[in-house]
Simulated assay, not measured.
Amino acid sequence: MPFMDEILPDTAEAFGKLRDSIFAGGELDRKTKELIAIASSVLMRCQYCVDVHSQRAVAHGANKKEIAEAIAIAMFIAGGSQLGWTNIYGENVYDIIFKEKKSGEPGEEKPESDKGCCCGK
């Protein structure tokens, strides 16, 4: 982070110390920490981080299958998270969408809450 070193050297130093303290010692070995970092990097969509942490994981004994499994775990969490984030109405929005309509209920009326939808429709 050359620009941080130049413009905010104290911040750059603090970030480096945070990294060093997280990846040094502790209950998890370095390989495991790097595999967690790979999965986290996938979720954050940081290609650079995935690359760096994959190289570091290999340097600490990880193999390609372990790295692939870390990536697969991130994919699973990303996919599954789409099922649980939708509780804005006090009820899961997917449950609202897919529940059986009782006879006499309006079919295709948009709820009042849709008027401010981010998609503009």
Rank of each mutant, 00 (worst) to 15 (best):
A70F: 04
E105N: 07
K31N: 03
L18D: 06
V58A: 04
L43G: 13
A68Q: 04
L35D: 00
F23K: 02
P9M: 09
A12Y: 03
T86E: 05
A62T: 05
F3Y: 08
D95V: 14
S103H: 12
M1S: 13
K64T: 11
T32C: 07
K31M: 12
A12S: 11
G80Q: 04
L83H: 06
G16R: 15
V58F: 02
G116M: 09
S103I: 14
A14M: 10
A12M: 06
M1W: 07
D5E: 15
E27M: 02
G90E: 09
I36W: 00
G84F: 11
E108H: 10
L43I: 04
C118W: 14
I73P: 00
G61W: 13
S41V: 02
S81A: 02
E13N: 13
I73E: 00
G16C: 07
R45F: 09
L35K: 00
F76N: 09
K31E: 09
F76Q: 07
E66D: 06
S21N: 12
I71N: 01
V58I: 15
S54K: 11
S103F: 09
E100N: 06
E27D: 06
I88V: 10
Y94D: 11
M1A: 14
D51T: 12
P106L: 08
V50Y: 00
S113H: 13
K99L: 05
G116N: 15
A14P: 04
P106Y: 04
C118L: 12
L43D: 04
T32V: 15
A72G: 14
R19C: 08
M44W: 03
K17G: 04
V93M: 13
I71C: 02
A74F: 02
I7V: 15
V42N: 00
M1C: 09
Y89F: 14
E27I: 05
L18K: 03
R19F: 12
